[in-house]
Structure formats: structure tokens, C-alpha cells
């Protein structure tokens, strides 16, 4: 072998060594990353895209550094325990950052809900308070109005009671007066009312319409009794016997009735409540054929009408 033919031998050797070195390098560079590193990269991307970047940036930074360290380990020795373990740790750090980011979001959401709940409670309190005040106000008004109503009712009851008492007293007085009258005069009860009869012979002189002085006490007593019958109407009726002409008797009976009316008015009986009429001899109560009957017919009747 010549020197020239021998010369290529070292070159071939060098080429072979270089090829082996390249193959080894290629093998190293193309070694697939361990599952832990793939997962760590994914987890980091997830954390970075999630809440961690905004809520817990420091934790995300720690995860980033851990992932960088894992990438370096993988670069240095792809299949070493160092590479696998550091990728595992990077995965956990990324997961931790993600979890803490989510936790921070939840804490913030809770704070938001709590704040809103406090505001709502405050509003509720204010509304309830306002309602309570309104109710209290309405209740106070109601109570006032009730008290006034009660007061007015009491007054009304009192008035009714005193009115009743007054009416009772008046009725008693009226009855007493009429009873007293009945002891000295002819008083009888008829369908048209209570009839008080004054004998014509006692009150008037024959053929006259002037009240005798002796009859005044009797008429005073009648006037006092009538004044107690405030709510009644009184009719004074004059009557004669059948002696003489009707014209004379009618005129006489009317004058006598008026005389009695006037006297009673003077004695305090209301003029508006008393009327006078002369009936002459048209309404006898006794027999005109006898002296006694005629005396009975000569009369003045005062009728107290039944209750108005």
C-alpha cells in the first residue's frame, strides 16, 4: 500500500467518528420529552390562561421558574431522573398555581356576595324600619281617632242618659200634675186624649164670658198642669145647655173657650199649643130636660191631645 492509498484511512476513520457523534447528538436532541414534562407544559399553559395570571401572579411565576428548570434538566440529560423529577415538580407547581388562582376567584366571589348581602340586608332593614314607622304612625292615628270616638260616644251616652232622665222627670212631673188635677177636677181619659172638664157655673156668671175670681185658683192649677205637658196640643172647647138660641149659645161658648185660652196663655201655657172652639149646645153630656143635666152641659173642656 502506498502512502497515497494509505492516506485516506484516517480520513475515513474521522468521518465515521463524526457520523457516530452526529447520530448520537441527533439521538439526544430528538429524545421525546417525558410525560411529566408534557403534562407540566400543558398545566402551565392552563394556569397562565386561567385566573392565576391575574389573581396569583407570584405563584404563576414560581411555576414558570420550575418549568424552566425542568426544561433545562431535560436539555441537559433527557432521560435522567433529574429531568423526570423536575418536570414532575413543575407539573405540581403549575397545578398549584391554577388551584390557588381558582381559590382566589372564589374568595373574591364570596366577598362580592357577602358585600351585596350586607347591602341588601341594610336595605331590608331600612325598608322594614320605614314600614314599622308607618305602621306605628297609622296605629297612633287610629288610637287617637278611637279615643276621640270613645270620648264622643261617652258624651253621647251621657247626653242620652241625661235626656232620658230629663224626659222621665218631665213625664213624672206631668203625670203628677195631672194626678193632682184629677183630685180637684173632673179628669177623664178618652180616645181623643185626656179631658179636663170645668163646670161653666163655677168659672163664669150666667150668660157671661168673664172668668170669676173664685175660679182663678182652679184655672191656675190647670195652667200649671198643662205647662208640664210641653209636647202636647191643647184644645179648649166651650159648651152650653140648650137654653136660648143657638146663635147666642154658639157665641157664648166661643167667648168662654177663648177666655179660658187667654187666661191659660197669661198663666204661661204656649199660645201656639192651644186653640179654642165654641160648640154651643151641640155636644151635650147631660139631659137638657133636667136642671142637673143642663148644669153638666154648661162646661168648658180642655183636651190634652194624645202624644204628638
Amino acid at each position: 500500500m502506498t502512502a497515497a492509498t494509505r492516506r485516506p484511512a484516517p480520513l475515513v476513520q474521522h468521518r465515521a467518528i463524526a457520523l457516530i457523534a452526529c447520530a448520537l447528538l441527533f439521538a439526544c436532541a430528538s429524545a421525546p420529552p417525558p410525560k411529566e414534562l408534557v403534562d407540566a407544559r400543558d398545566a402551565y399553559r392552563r394556569a397562565e390562561a386561567g385566573a392565576a395570571a391575574k389573581m396569583v401572579p407570584a405563584e404563576l411565576h414560581v411555576a414558570r421558574e420550575s418549568l424552566d428548570a425542568a426544561e433545562r434538566s431535560f436539555g441537559d440529560a433527557p432521560t435522567s431522573w433529574d429531568a423526570i423529577d423536575s418536570a414532575y415538580i413543575a407539573l405540581r407547581k403549575a397545578q398549584r398555581a391554577e388551584a390557588l388562582g381558582n381559590a382566589a376567584v372564589a374568595v373574591k366571589a364570596k366577598e362580592g356576595s357577602d358585600k351585596e348581602a350586607r347591602r341588601a340586608q341594610q336595605d331590608l332593614l331600612l325598608t322594614t324600619d320605614a314600614k314599622l314607622r308607618n305602621t306605628e304612625g297609622a296605629l297612633a292615628k287610629e288610637r287617637d281617632s278611637l279615643a276621640k270616638e270613645r270620648e264622643s260616644l261617652a258624651k253621647e251616652r251621657e247626653a242620652t242618659a241625661s235626656e232620658r232622665a230629663a224626659r222621665l222627670a218631665a213625664e213624672t212631673k206631668a203625670k203628677d200634675a195631672m194626678d193632682a188635677l184629677a183630685k180637684s177636677l173632673a179628669v177623664r181619659s178618652e180616645a181623643r186624649g185626656t179631658v179636663i172638664t170645668l163646670s161653666g157655673g163655677v168659672v163664669f156668671a150666667t150668660g157671661r164670658a168673664t172668668i170669676l175670681v173664685g175660679a182663678q185658683a182652679q184655672l191656675n192649677q190647670v195652667a200649671d198642669a198643662l205647662k208640664t205637658q210641653a209636647e202636647h196640643h191643647f184644645s179648649v172647647e166651650g159648651h152650653t145647655d140648650n137654653q136660648g138660641s143657638d146663635r147666642v149659645n154658639d157665641g157664648l161658648s166661643a167667648r168662654r173657650a177663648n177666655a179660658v185660652r187667654d187666661y191659660l196663655i197669661v198663666r204661661g201655657v204656649s199660645a201656639a199649643a192651644i186653640t179654642a172652639t165654641g160648640f154651643g149646645s151641640s155636644k151635650p153630656v147631660g139631659d137638657n130636660h133636667t136642671a142637673e143635666g143642663r148644669a153638666m152641659n154648661r162646661r168648658v173642656e180642655i183636651i190634652v191631645d194624645k202624644a204628638p
Binding site: 405540581r92 372564589a106 374568595v107 364570596k110
Partner: peptide, 25 residues
């Protein structure tokens, strides 16, 4: 690795608690 797992467990527990509290609120 053990330490990283334990720290992740803390974070997961905190996340679960925070989420439950937020839900309750």
C-alpha cells in the same frame, strides 16, 4: 416531589373550601 405534592394538596383544599364558601354565600 413529595413537598410539591403536599403543597398542591394544600392549594386544592383551599380551592375546595373557597368554592364551597362562595357557593354558600
Amino acid at each position: 416531589r413529595a413537598e410539591a405534592d403536599a403543597e398542591l394538596a394544600v392549594a386544592l383544599a383551599r380551592e375546595a373550601t373557597a368554592k364551597a364558601e362562595a357557593e354558600k354565600a
